[in-house]
Design a protein around this nucleic acid. Structure first.
Length: 1047
RNA sequence: GGGCCCGUAGCUUAGCUUGGUAGAGCGCCCGGCUGAUAACCGGGAGGUCGCGGGUUCAAGUCCCGCCGGGCCCA
């Protein structure tokens, strides 16, 4: 493998390798033989744009990581991607393309068939482009076989849900007040009302004259004057306090607490509250509608124009405490009106224009008519005040037109009846994280019936036929079923307009039944994915491979897709269709804002993946390291760091590969049992660490915690292997012979690195594939065909890991002491002293004495109890809370304080007798050695560094012998540098010439053998200036001239 | 108005399910080219873990309230 890490060219190479060697196809074939199954259903993205958002890339990379991991884990993995291809996003895009302004133009000018075909083409093109982008970042899914909601098999399968709902008595056509887009001319469900805009609307106070009075008026407030022609009654809260307010000889009735605000807003300064009373007095009061003479629909409504108690639906935060109600244009109005038997007056057509029943306003757009309505009110002395208000108003999620509310007849599935079943089912699902369950639970408690019909073209046609003769409803569950009852040809394409022409024979009267014209809600399309995507014979397939093992999407899908899947699963199968849900966060910009092209903060994935500084795996690793369910902020700095980490990982494999290849090491001819006796303690430590990490990672992945996989594996390779183990074992690789000591090290390293490669392959598949092809000798076609490494519990050794942790802590303190004393690490010292508080720590440190010596670069190390520090120090005691707490409970803080205030006395008693006695709050207390840490201050001539388990002491002064060896090591270092400059290979010999200061010449002659062996020199000639490369070096203020030649 | 999430060193964050003396990277200060890698390695300083209560011998971690920020519903 190349020694230099170059992600961009590596990744292109691997993309080609995968393509040319059909790696995915081979993997699929290989994987299909596994016994256990893992069914994954892809949440279908909208192919509305060919370039994916980084957040979408994160989504795909998480999915890819999990799928790759499940394959390694031995699961037969169902990995079909999906695309959501119907609905308003596509329709609006095509309308724009074709310059269509209104729905009727589609029918009259373009033709529905033509329109539908263009929608289809658009969706397929974008899907194709997205697919290429996903493949490019290494997403191993079945891209030749995506499910698409526009496929006829998918549509045919999906009909079964509606039929099942019908059979269960859940399907109905009914009237509800729903949001309506007058431009798109379709209803929208609540969950599609996701966009709001700041909109200016009229804010008017209107007087409704009390019937039978001369000058008494109910005052109502509205920002939707267009709903006044449809007014049926007025709502109050009977428990509120109301007032009669005298203004210009008129009595205005409103809530007492609203009087001053209303007067202020209306600019009325002269008014008087003449009476206050409970709202109950108003109930049943009749009023006269101010526009009755010009609104046809108001005829016959006199008896309904009364004041009604609506309880807490009426608030005092704004308005007057009297609420004008138009059941045809308001949700709450509708529900209250149903209770009291009031008629539903709905005066607006699909385009947002008034119907003839609106009388004077017929044909006018509801928003445009506001001014005229306000004028008419004024002329009738019914307008108290007219102003403007800017408020957040819902707009169409695709075309941004302000929505209106209309009571309209639509097709519903009565899911509110299934509330208890839904709540029970979410308990049976694993939610990662837990709060996903709490959230969706709250949604279920507030669930409303599912409006599944839409008045558009490009969608799944509702499979509902109604007999023209007798009105019988026929619900069809599949294409096969339709063919059996159709008396006309069933077209290949089940879309509108062709499906509209299919006539069905009525099974009741023999008459002709025609399809209702509606198409289905897009959440219907995605909600049926778990079975509709299985193709023909979905029921048989479901029995084989259902239920879904995992669905995985952003947290917005709790209310969206996860919810629609859940509803569909319970309706169709009486169960949640999935076993587990993983929720991921959103990708934000560096400031925490959402990324949008219009905001100029949008980063395209290719800015990372095609950047020679980074690459695909850098992006993948960084994405996966973020905590999956939390929103993440994009960060170039974090990508820099990730690149560095990947480089270190690469170098670990370069090191291992280089030396193993040099020695022709073949792991297949050895086994661990034979090599066990040659293992050093650091080998055992690495095996312990490795098996522990493998175990932890497997546990993490049981919960699909991919960020823990990514973080633990990279940390293990970088911290444990690169920064620690390789430093310890490097010298073992230099040995020329096939020494078992070296082979043992190679064997352990190979096993660990190979297993690590496999575990990392779901995270960084490009890099691991490249390394795998060079590093692994017993290899398969691809790293992705490997199996997860086994956990060998017998190697997990708490004791060794603690010993090595201790050695690190000792080394850290020792290096600190060196730095304080100004002693370079390269200079060997004769002695270091380590004093530890705990006898157990002393024993452990002695077990890793050789490691400590190496790490400190000392010839010897004296390890002992903390009392040994007395030779160098004065002593003190500090409290150890971890042991005081359990022993003394509530006295703990007092004892801690006592020890701190009597440090030396406590310390000396403990040293002398093993304990210190004191009375605290009347209780005798015996402080023992394990209750404290004994620390001491260092004498002159020595330098120490404390750490929480003890102290490391070094002699400040360097001896002559130590100095000589230090200089030799400095010389050796320069020689290594020059070898590199000459491009001398690791196993090549050199000739060496060294000219030293006169007083060093004799000294150097004593060290020539040492220098030879350390630098791989054939000869060392002292005193001559010669060589292919000659450089002067200044070492300890003296000049040395070193010459190097290849031999 | 209701629900959910987040708050740890100057910056970015791990730790929380399973309570025990708070870790990492960058930045800052001081060192180093001990034959993979200077795109590297080492040491140090720096943290009232948003605030206040509670449970506990012991709380970043569990419970309650508040403050600030974000998302969803209305």
């Amino acid at each position: 493998m190349p020694s230099k890490f170059d992600p961009l060219s590596t990744e292109k190479e691997i993309l080609k390798f995968w393509e040319q060697n059909k790696i995915y196809e081979k993997l699929k074939e290989y994987n299909s033989k596994f016994e256990k199954k893992f069914l994954f259903i892809d949440g279908p993205p909208y192919p509305s744009s060919p370039i994916p958002h980084i957040g979408t890339v994160w989504n795909k990379v998480i999915k890819d990581c999990i799928l790759r991991y499940e394959r390694l884990a031995g699961f037969r993995t169902y990995d079909q991607p999906g695309y959501d291809t119907h609905g308003l996003p596509i329709e609006v895009a095509i309308e724009k393309q074709l310059g269509i302004q209104k729905k009727s133009d589609i029918i009259e000018k373009i033709g529905v068939d033509n329109f539908v075909n263009k929608c289809k083409e658009f969706a397929l093109n974008n899907a194709s482009s997205l697919t290429a982008n996903f493949k490019n970042i290494g997403i191993f899914m079945d891209w030749n076989n995506p499910y698409m909601t526009l496929h006829n098999d998918y549509i045919s399968n999906s009909w079964m849900l509606i039929k099942k709902a019908y059979e269960r008595g859940l399907l109905y056509k009914g009237v509800h007040v729903l949001h309506w887009c007058p431009r798109c001319e379709t209803t929208l469900a609540d969950y599609e009302v996701s966009e709001y805009k700041e909109i200016e609307d009229p804010s008017i106070y209107v007087k409704f004259k009390v019937k039978g009075s001369e000058n008494r008026y109910l005052v109502i407030w509205t920002t939707t004057p267009w709903t006044l022609p449809a007014n049926v009654f007025v709502m109050i809260n009977k428990d509120y306090e109301y007032a009669e307010v005298e203004v210009n000889n008129e009595i205005l009735i409103m809530a007492k607490d609203r009087v001053s605000d209303v007067m202020k807003e209306a600019g009325i300064k002269n008014y008087k509250i003449v009476r206050t009373f409970k709202g109950v007095e108003l109930v049943g009061l009749q009023y006269i509608h101010p526009l009755a003479d010009i609104v046809t629909a108001q005829k016959g409504l006199d008896n309904y124009h009364i004041v009604v108690d609506a309880g807490e639906e009426v608030t005092l935060t704004e308005g007057t405490g009297l609420v004008h109600s138009a059941p045809g244009h308001g949700d709450i109005d509708f529900e209250i009106g149903k209770k009291i038997g009031a008629p539903v007056v709905m005066l607006v057509n699909d385009r947002g224009e008034f119907l003839p029943e609106a009388g004077k306003y017929v044909g006018k757009n509801v928003r445009s008519a506001a001014e005229e309505i306000i004028n008419d009110l004024k002329q009738r002395n019914a307008l108290l005040h007219s102003g403007k208000v800017v408020h957040r108003y819902p707009v169409c999620w695709r075309c941004k037109t302000p929505l209106i509310l209309r009571a309209i007849e639509q097709w519903f599935i009565g899911v509110s009846k299934l509330k208890e079943e839904l709540l029970k089912e979410i308990d049976n699902v694993k939610w990662v994280p837990d709060w996903g369950k709490t959230r969706i639970g709250n949604m279920v408690r507030e669930i409303r019936d599912w409006v599944i019909s839409r008045q558009r073209f490009w969608g799944t046609p509702l499979p509902i036929w109604i007999c023209k003769n007798c009105g019988n409803i026929i619900v069809i569950g599949s294409r096969d079923e339709l063919e059996k009852v159709a008396i006309t040809k069933v077209p290949e394409d089940l879309h509108r307009p062709w499906i509209d022409k299919v006539v069905v024979r009525c099974n009741k009267c023999g008459g002709e039944a025609h399809r209702v014209p509606d198409v289905a809600d897009v959440w219907f399309d995605s909600g049926v994915a778990f079975f509709a995507s299985l193709g023909k014979d979905w029921e048989k397939k479901w029995k084989e491979i259902g239920p879904v093992d995992l669905v995985l999407e952003g947290h917005d899908q709790l209310r969206g897709w996860f919810f629609s899947l859940l509803r569909a699963g319970v309706i169709l199968l009486d169960r949640a269709p999935y076993n587990a849900v993983l929720v991921h966060g959103f990708m934000l910009d560096e400031q925490g804002r959402e990324m949008h092209k219009s905001l100029g903060n949008y980063v395209e994935p290719s800015q990372v993946t095609e950047n020679e500084k980074y690459g695909r795996d850098v992006l993948r690793l960084w994405l996966l390291r973020n905590t999956t369910w939390e929103d993440a902020k994009f960060s170039w700095k974090a990508l820099d760091q990730t690149k560095r980490d990947l480089n270190i990982i690469w170098n670990v494999y370069v090191f291992a590969s280089t030396y193993m290849n040099l020695d022709n090491f073949d792991p297949r001819i050895y086994n661990l049992d034979n090599l066990k006796q040659y293992l050093r303690i650091e080998d055992l430590w690495l095996l312990s660490r490795y098996n522990r990490v493998v175990k932890e990672v497997k546990e993490s992945m049981n919960d699909f915690k991919v960020h823990e996989l990514a973080n633990k594996m990279t940390s293990f390779i970088i911290d444990d292997i690169s920064r620690f183990y390789l430093r310890l074992v490097r010298k073992r690789a230099w040995n020329e012979s096939n020494d078992p000591d070296k082979i043992a090290m190679y064997y352990v390293l190979y096993e660990v690195l190979k297993g690590s490669l496999v575990l990392l392959s779901p995270v960084i598949p490009f890099t691991t594939e490249r390394i795998y092809q060079d590093f692994v000798v017993d290899k398969k076609d691809s790293v992705s065909m490997e199996s997860l490494p086994e956990v060998k519990e017998e190697f997990i050794n708490d004791k060794i890991e603690k010993e090595f942790e201790l050695s690190k802590e000792i080394a850290e303190a020792g290096l600190n002491a060196r730095a304080k004393a100004g002693i370079k690490l390269r200079w060997p010292i004769k002695n270091a002293y380590v004093f530890l508080v705990s006898d157990i720590d002393v024993e452990m440190a002695n077990n890793v004495k050789e490691v400590i010596k190496f790490l400190l670069n000392t010839k010897d190390v004296e390890i002992g109890g903390i009392e040994g520090y007395r030779r160098f120090s004065k002593i003190k005691a500090t409290p150890n809370r971890g042991t005081i707490g359990p022993d003394f409970k509530r006295l703990t803080n007092k004892i801690v304080e006592y020890i701190e205030n009597n440090s030396e006395k406590v310390a000396s008693d403990i040293i002398a007798k093993g304990y210190h006695e004191v009375v605290i709050e009347g209780e005798p207390v015996q402080i023992k050695v394990n209750h404290v840490n004994i620390l001491e201050e260092t004498e002159e001539g020595y330098i120490s560094a404390r750490f929480n388990k003890g102290v490391v002491v070094l002699k400040k002064e360097i001896s002559k012998e130590e100095e000589e060896e230090g200089i030799v090591r400095d010389i050796i270092r320069r020689i290594q540098f020059m070898r590199k400059q000459l491009n001398v290979q690791i196993n090549d010999y050199i000739l060496l010439y060294i000219k030293a200061p006169e007083e060093r010449t004799e000294m150097l002659k004593k060290w020539t053998d040492y220098i030879k062996s350390e630098t791989r020199a054939k000869e060392v000639i002292i005193g001559e200036v010669k060589g292919d490369l000659i450089l002067p070096w200044e070492i300890e203020d003296e000049e040395y001239i070193i010459g190097v030649s290849k031999s």
